[in-house]
Structures are given as C-alpha cells and as structure tokens.
Amino acid sequence: MKLSGLWVALLTPFEPDGAVDHGALRALVEDLVPRGVDGLVPLGSTGEFTELDADERAAVLRTVVQAAAGRVPVLAGVSDLSTRATCRNAVEAARAGADAVLVLPPLYWKLPDDGVFAHFTAVADATALPVVAYDFPALTGQPLSPALLGRLAAEEPRVIGVKLTVRDLDVVRKALAATRASRPDFSIVTGFEDLIPAAVWAGADGGISGLANVVPDELVAMVAALRAGRPDVAASIREVLRHFDAYDLTVPAIPGLKAVAAAVGRIPRATARLGSGASEATVVAAAARWVTRHQALVEPERVLAGQSARTP
C-alpha cells in the first residue's frame, strides 16, 4: 500500500442519544469514495477516537471497511494510552479488514526516541498490517524527531510512512531529508490542508484531511493539480483555503467541523462527544452562519438535505 494523494480523516457520526450512527457512516463513505479520494482514515483525531470504547472502535472500523468494499484502502487509527492497548487495537484492525494502521506514540508517558521506536516496532510485530506513524505534537506533547523517523525508515520496513500534523514546513523538510535517502518509498503526508501545497512541492506525498468531510471535491482537485503541476493549481489552492475557517468555529475544532458537515448534508446531525464548552445548538448556529458565508461553495441540494436531517 502506498500512502499518497488525498485521504479523508473520517468523522464519526452519532445518533441524537450519542450512539454511533452506522447508517450515516456508511452513507458518508458512499458519498466520498466516488469523488476520487485515495483512501479513508477512520478512528483518527477527526473521528473522535478518544471518545469511543473498544467495542465501538471495532464496530466503526467494520462499517468503514464494509462500505469501502475494497474500492479504496482503509488506514485504521489504533492509537491508545499504552503500547499494549495500541497493539490490541491493531490486531482488531487486522481482523476487521483494514489495510494499514495509523499509530501515535503512547499517549501518557513521554518516552525517549528508543522507547518510541520500540512502540512502533511492537505494533508492527502485533499484526502483519503496514504501520503509518502519526506525529501530532500539539496534542501528544511528543514530537517524532527527524532522527527517529530516519531510523524507522532505515531499520523498520513495516513502517511505510508518517502523517505530520504540524504547522511548520521545516518539520516536513527535515522529515524528508531524514527518510528519503534510505527509503525513497517512505510516504510523508501532512494533516493540515493549508500545508499540503508547500509540502507536496517540497517532495511530500499528499495529505490526510478532516476538511475533506465537508469539501472533498475541492481537496481532491487541489491535490491532483499539485501532483500534475497544472497551471490552474493556484486557483485550486485558493478554493481550498477559503474553507479553512471551518476549523475556527470551536476549540477543539472537531465539534465545529462536524456541525459544518451536518449543515452541508454530509452527515445527518452535529452531535459530538468531544466537548467544546458550547452547546450543540450554539455550534449548529455557528455552522449555519459558516454556510451562509460559503454559500457558493456547497451544493444547494446538500444544504437543504442537511437542514432537513438535523435534529433540533
């Protein structure tokens, strides 16, 4: 499996009572796959994986794999507090039919590079699935150093790449320099859409996008234009960046992003387990104002579908 292009960090839709809405999750996958996304990433940060128990995680993954039906690969988030729990999740991901696993460093203790290396190799030992390392230092407090990434690339062929959810392009540059000499096939993707263009121009392979739950067509088009070096790429980048303020509606960003996805009809409702300090009604109202500002950017029939599907 090659991690490249535009992958979607899937939202996890919920019923009004907070249970996982598997019908809505299947519909989201069915909506996204024909639009040309290169892969699906359930149970990541955008999917509120920290708010799901083990049974719910397994059920979410089964739904996504079944809905994808082999049309695109599924990269399953398996991160947890400990290496042992992460390995257990990786085994479940393999049973569910995932194509690879996405792995943060352990989420409580801060380990030296040797300890983090051992964490990734333990996950690789637990399952035959390829491993993608996940660097999100703003949340983990544990950046994956260039030296660590270089060691993974050189010594651990089962680790096939890294997702860099970082704000600094220099981190991408250093990761490329550390890995590509020994592993030209080592994939590097970014987790922030506004960094995808510069990262791809620097030599990275694409991005894993939460915003693609809302505007997949624009993101697929942007990444295709970047990879092809087309002259219309600047306009495509501007089109994507006009949507980036969807992340500003709440802190953390996921409840607001979910409300925007509901407002444009990608999912039935804005219900989130991850709290932002604002009521769901307040977040839904903010998302409605976002849609008003971006009216030309969404399909009118989707907006109407979203409005009719939302619960009060």
Rank of each mutant, 00 (worst) to 15 (best):
L6I: 09
L10D: 04
D17T: 08
D17W: 00
G18I: 08
V20H: 04
L28Y: 06
V29D: 11
D31W: 04
L32C: 11
L32A: 08
P34W: 01
P34D: 06
R35G: 04
D38P: 07
L40S: 08
T46W: 00
T46S: 12
G47E: 08
T50A: 15
D53C: 09
A54Q: 12
A54H: 08
D55W: 00
A58C: 05
V64M: 05
A67G: 09
A68W: 00
G70N: 06
V74D: 03
G77L: 07
D80H: 04
L81H: 03
S82T: 15
R84F: 02
N89M: 01
N89P: 06
V91E: 14
V91T: 12
V91D: 06
A100K: 03
V101A: 05
P105S: 13
P105C: 12
Y108M: 11
P112I: 04
D113S: 12
D113P: 11
A118S: 13
H119C: 10
H119A: 10
F120E: 06
V123K: 02
V123T: 08
Y134N: 02
D135S: 14
D135F: 00
L139F: 13
L139N: 15
P143W: 03
L144M: 14
S145D: 09
L149F: 03
G150D: 07
R151C: 12
A154H: 05
E155F: 02
R158C: 07
I160L: 05
G161T: 12
V162R: 01
V166D: 09
R167E: 15
D168V: 06
L169N: 12
L169G: 11
D170F: 01
V171Y: 10
A175D: 10
A177T: 12
A181Y: 00
F186E: 08
F186A: 13
I188Q: 03
G191H: 05
F192L: 15
E193L: 00
E193D: 15
L195H: 01
V200S: 10
V200G: 12
G203K: 08
A204I: 09
A204P: 10
G207D: 02
A212G: 14
A212D: 02
N213R: 04
E218Y: 01
A224T: 11
A224V: 00
R227V: 03
A228L: 02
A234W: 00
S236Q: 14
R238S: 11
E239F: 00
L241V: 06
F244L: 12
Y247D: 06
Y247E: 14
D248P: 01
L257M: 15
K258W: 05
A261I: 07
A263Y: 02
G265E: 05
R266H: 09
I267H: 09
A270S: 15
G277N: 07
G277S: 10
E280K: 04
A281P: 09
T282G: 07
H294T: 08
Q295G: 09
E299R: 15
P300F: 01
P300C: 05
P300W: 00
V303W: 01
L304G: 01
S308F: 02
A309W: 01
T311L: 05
P312E: 13
